[in-house]
Nucleic acid binder design. Structure first.
Length: 212
DNA sequence: AACTCGGGGCA
DNA sequence: TGCCCAGAGTT
């Protein structure tokens, strides 16, 4: 790990942790199953929408077995307010039934098994592997990819390359929080189109957009 | 690699 | 109104 990268990580830890909400206070999930379902629902949606939904959904169906016996209409009713709710209702119901029938109700701990579940791609699989099972993988979405490149943590073209680059410089125990903080930072401050550089707490270590 | 899904929030 | 979005699946 280079000295510069290590210093940047420590700095990010400090300022982003102060600015954005603690992930453990925002998305409280009591099991790998709830983390998996919430992450599937979160794709292309906002955290606030997902928090509202999961409150009622997990009260009715806290685990795979109880969600597996719901009707599709019931599941759809819970998730009606988020993007792609029809597809996601089918996906989380089908995934719950696979878990209940083939995995004894437990969430598998390998990428291959996770990505076989409907609605689960590489990013969602990594969130579960890192967040629920503490495996050394880095979830990278468009925000993490964009912000990491802007602030000079890496210089990569796609998320797979970013994943590999970040794994070399992010301490394992900070992967989950790092993903959360960079995601929020990219969503609300370091936006794709009009980044709010004047209001950015990270600008002193950032060369964007001057030297992009 | 490009395209589709798909409805709400916000400028 | 138009533009954008805590990706995944298909072609």
């Amino acid at each position: 790990m280079s000295q510069t990268a290590k210093q940047k990580i420590e700095f990010l830890r400090e300022v982003l942790g102060a600015r954005y909400p603690d992930p453990k206070s925002e998305l409280v999930f009591h099991s790998p199953f709830q983390l998996l379902i919430a992450t599937i629902l979160a794709a292309q949606s906002t955290d606030r929408q997902v928090n509202i939904i999961t409150g009622e959904l997990f009260k009715a169906a806290p685990d795979a077995e109880s969600m597996a016996v719901l009707d599709l209409e019931a599941v759809t009713g819970y998730v009606r307010t988020i993007n792609y709710f029809n597809t996601k209702a089918k996906n989380i119901l089908a995934a719950s039934r696979i878990l209940a029938e083939e995995y004894n109700g437990k969430v598998p701990e390998t990428r291959e098994a996770l990505e076989r579940l409907p609605g689960v791609g590489r990013k969602t699989a990594n969130v579960v592997l890192a967040g629920a099972f503490r495996q050394p993988v880095m979830p990278v979405d468009t925000h993490v990819h964009r912000v990491s490149n802007r602030i000079g943590l890496c210089r990569t073209r796609n998320v797979e390359e970013t994943e590999a680059a970040l794994m070399k410089i992010i301490p394992e125990e900070w992967v989950v929080d790092f993903h959360h903080y960079l995601l929020l930072h990219g969503r609300y401050t370091c936006k794709a189109k009009k980044p709010a550089c004047a209001d950015c707490p990270v600008r002193e270590i950032c060369a964007y957009p001057e030297k992009q």
